[in-house]
């Protein structure tokens, strides 16, 4: 039975990946991409990596999908505007043929297949189990949490996670940097006045908030944690924006800056404090480790959620 489910999942994932690549229309590609992301999340669950599955479903499929849908709408607006002009110029200029040779395609294809085969062979030789699972679990009592993944992320390798929280902030700055130039003036987003939509969003908001908080707290004992919770909280911000409540642009500038940086900032100040009191960077006193990790995770989730909302607000501005 297991092998049946797994092989079905594998075939579906690859099939959807191909459909996504070969889709004739952008809109179709985006929707197939949603389905593909969900299949991938299921595959992660089958592999026993529930943390990754939640992150995949929420970030890679959910948040990315929202951004793609949004850009899809922009594309359709741009194209409908430029359609006539494009058709006019297209009739004048002879269409340049792509210099596409079947030999290069064949060589590339063969190379890819060869690469895949060697990869599979290399992965095959990787021994089962092993890794650091045993010593990560042996040190759990000292770490302040009960879930090994959370212990690795927030305690053993807190430095990596701190840098990754920084990467999200940098990503936000990068989007601002790239947004310096607006190729096309987008028509302003008229706030949705649909009462049904607004009502639904209002109902969803507390549910999402509670579920996010649950994931955050549950991360101590099982799959979940800051990144997963952040996406759910970020979804609140995005939904409110879609409903016409432009929360992120209403908040004062100072507050926005604090929201976006507090995760990274608190983690960093905590690290410096630990060093000032004689420990190493990110060395928690064992007695307070659990509490401090929860605070760090909560603030990180707030920052990431704020960053996601800010990205959405900036791109749809």
């Amino acid at each position: 039975m297991d092998i049946l489910i797994d092989s079905l999942l594998a075939i579906l994932t690859i099939y959807l990946a191909f459909r996504c690549m070969l889709a004739p229309k952008l809109s179709k590609a985006v929707f197939v991409f949603f389905a593909f992301g969900l299949m991938l999340a299921l595959a992660w669950i089958r592999l026993g990596a529930v943390d990754v599955a939640i992150a995949e479903a929420a970030i890679a499929s959910g948040f990315m999908g929202v951004l793609m849908l949004d850009s899809l709408r922009d594309f359709s607006l741009i194209f409908s505007k430029n359609q006539e002009r494009l058709e006019e110029t297209a009739s004048k200029i002879p269409i340049k043929k792509d210099s596409y040779h079947w030999t290069t395609a064949l060589a590339l294809g063969l190379g890819l297949i060869l690469f895949l085969l060697i990869s599979i062979q290399a992965i095959w030789e990787v021994p089962q189990g092993g890794g650091l699972t045993a010593i990560a679990e042996a040190n759990l009592p000292m770490s302040g949490v009960e879930h090994p993944v959370t212990a690795v992320l927030l305690n053993y390798r807190a430095y990596d996670t701190w840098l990754e929280i920084g990467v999200i902030l940098m990503g936000l700055l990068a989007i601002f940097a790239a947004g310096g130039l607006k190729q096309y003036r987008k028509p302003g987003l008229a706030p949705a006045q649909d009462p049904l939509l607004r009502k639904t969003i209002l109902i969803f908001t507390p549910v999402l908030f509670l579920f996010g908080a649950f994931l955050l707290y549950f991360g101590k004992m099982g799959p979940g944690g800051a990144f997963q919770a952040a996406v759910l909280w970020g979804a609140i911000g995005i939904l409110l924006h879609l409903g016409g409540w432009t929360v992120f642009t209403v908040i004062p500038r100072r507050m926005r800056q604090i929201l976006v940086t507090i995760g990274l900032g608190f983690f960093m100040i905590l690290g410096f404090t630990q060093m000032a009191t004689g420990g190493a960077f990110f060395e928690y006193p064992p007695a307070y480790a659990g509490f401090l990790i929860l605070v760090v995770e909560t603030l990180a989730a707030i920052s990431i959620a704020a960053a996601l909302t800010a990205i959405f607000a900036f791109l749809t501005k």
Partner: peptide, 24 residues
């Protein structure tokens, strides 16, 4: 793995700086 995280930091910042001028 930490090396991977640091090159990620470097890449994102480097690309963001490279497009800072906003020219096409």
């Amino acid at each position: 793995f930490n090396l991977y995280v640091t090159i990620e930091v470097i890449t994102i910042c480097a690309v963001a700086l490279a497009v800072l001028s906003g020219e096409a």
